[in-house]
Design a protein around this nucleic acid. Sequence first.
DNA 1: TCTGGGGTCCTAGGACCC
DNA 2: TCTGGGGTCCTAGGACCC
Length: 436
Amino acid sequence: MFALIDGNNFYVSCERAFNPHLQGVPVIVLSNNDGCTIARSEEAKSLGIKMGQPYFQVRKLEESDGLVSLSANFILYGDISSRMMRLAASMGPEQEVYSIDECFIGGLQGVPELTRRAWVIRARIQRSLGIPCCIGIAPTKTLAKLCNHIAKDAERKPGSYPAEFMRVCNWQELSTEQREQLLKATPAGDIWGIGKRIAKQLAEAGIHTAWDVAGMPAALAKKRWSVTLEKTVLELQGISCIDLETAPPPKQQIACTRSFGKPVTELQPLLEAISEFVTRAAEKARRDGLVAGQLLVFAYTSPFSKQEPWTGSATVPFTTPTSDTAALVNAALQGMQRVYESGYKLSKAGVILMDLRSAHAQQQSSLFDPADAHTAERQRLMQALDSVNQRFGPGTLKLASSGLANGPNAGWRMKQAKRSPHYTTCWEDVPIAYAK
DNA sequence: TCTGGGGTCCTAGGACCC
DNA sequence: TCTGGGGTCCTAGGACCC
């Protein structure tokens, strides 16, 4: 048995918890640079604002309909999230924090009165944090997701589902007829794991509702689509295929990417932005005790612009995996300098650390490396950097980016053709000067 | 004028090997 | 015209999630 506990319109609810004036009015929260909508209150949804819709398209509603638009405050949302997760954890013995606003609870066999328990947890979260949430309970994760969806829509879209299922919905307590009715009332595309593309393909095959999906032979789902859809079918039939993940799986990559507020047209500001991205990514890696074996750096023009598109990206492998900011910045800047072509208006850039492994294991294996003393010294320096920045705020202490070396050892080769240059360079650590 | 950011998993197809 | 068979590994791209 699984429960899914999910905060409603989470970012908006966080803002409302601190500003009661936001109750009852249309509110949206915007992404970085106030680019597009990433959370909407029910009132904002009623105005027709879509998830991900660009701000410039909805701004006029501020005048005409009293829409309130807020810039995102992720520090606040993260803090409220961890409090909510702590309260949600008392639903059952095992918890998987699935995203900032939702968690699965597992190990519920034998836990009595699950429905009543869910109501109590819900009330606690509402009372102490001011966050409304909905809870779905079912024998599989996909069905728990579905029950959660029903619990939400029964409240906010009257008529979509019977009102008796609003806020808390327990699959176990439903009759066969009720289950059939709910599955038939749910479009296939609303099921967890079925996105736009697959929903369209299913519709072409005459499969429109969750009831239709649950009635598919699992083998057909696998043969014609994929193992992913096969699992979805089985889960809808009540056969659990997706386990609870109580320990987060080891990270495979760490990314830091941003859209620019204004297009970037020169190399220098691009490199400065990239230094910033790498610095953030390196901090994340050190916080998780990881080192990167490879780094990918990229920049591209806006996909919405009518101008000629351009993408530049470079992969830089490290002979010794590292989380050293200077080493990573150096590599990223060298990589970007290799692929950069002037004359384009760049709208986005980023850095992805790949081929991650534990810094601890790394150290073990290089126990007899004569470069070790140097490495250890670097690590202490990075630790000092992190603790200062943690205490006084990000960016208080920075590395001087003197690292625009020309790469004497760059055995790079071209991997992709003209419009999308993609190179690989073999990068070696280069000592770098520090400044306060 | 202005269009998010950070992830994961699966699959097909190419390279390579015997 | 006809063009081995089977295995592994890697990568790019597609699809999904919040």
